[in-house]
Design a protein around this nucleic acid. Sequence first.
DNA 1: CGAGTTTGACCTGCGC
DNA 2: GCGCAGGTCAAACTCG
Length: 307
Amino acid sequence: MKKEATKMEDLMESSSFSEHIQSSTYPLSGVFDTSGEEGEKSSLGFMELLGIQDFSPSMFDYMPQQLPSVVPPAVKEYSSETLNLPATPNSSSISSASSEAVNEEQAKAVDEEEEQQKTKKQLKPKKTNQKKQREPRFAFMTKSEVDHLEDGYRWRKYGQKAVKNSPYPRSYYRCTTASCGVKKRVERSCGDPTIVVTTYEGQHTHPSPVMPRGTPACFMPDSGRLSAGGAAANFAMSMPTMTFSYNQQLHQQPHVNNFSPLSFGYVSSSASSASVNDRRFCTPRSALLRDHGLLQDIVPSLMPKEE
DNA sequence: CGAGTTTGACCTGCGC
DNA sequence: GCGCAGGTCAAACTCG
């Protein structure tokens, strides 16, 4: 038990990603094993994630210690979309150009400066002075041989960077839907190359484009909305086609698999004031029974048991 | 030809 | 201020 925790700790520390896990606002991590027989199949990768049995619950036992116990920073981060008020960098040069004391050379210099700024702008729009605020990030670790797991959404890779102290590069993906600014980072843990660390940033503003069957409400884009206020004990993680939930109450009970498919898609918000909000996105069991979407592909034994 | 990937350059934040 | 590392852009390229 403790060994497992230590192992996990090592893993977390060994990965450059551990910084994110520990500093990001709503880290939710677990290791799934898709390295089984069909584990490499990228389509329905997450379904396979659910189908696996070879993950270690004790790893999740460990996680709460890594998790921040208070919500506010995340809520703040989530709710305050930065207003990118355009700075007016040219105003000064314009006003200086209007001065009568400006000679031709100076004007030339100003023009050149403006030209340079223009070019710079073309390369990259001027950023505001405000500290860039990030969307909350949701991270999870997946044991898989494929880097980019199929998750129901379409992603466009827009960058790749070498990660310091890691032989494995980090890939950057953006949701291809125009109005959707969700980003995803994928990298391998340098501690354990079989583990893929995926970080989602932001929320989809649209349903999954490859969700042919009815999509349970819980899997809709907003399902991972962070709950303000007294929801500190509950974690709901919105992933493109599914919602993983972490429930601290469950965690406190021994022998309960906190992150098994049993808690999949189910947020037990109990007394939380935010529970109403949470429930709004959470599918009643009956709905799940009616149409599980991709969940229908899960073997029955892994489906939530009726209580 | 459109969509997606690759990759070098650039920007930004942060620590020293 | 400088250097480093992370993140992003965008032109070139690939693929179906």
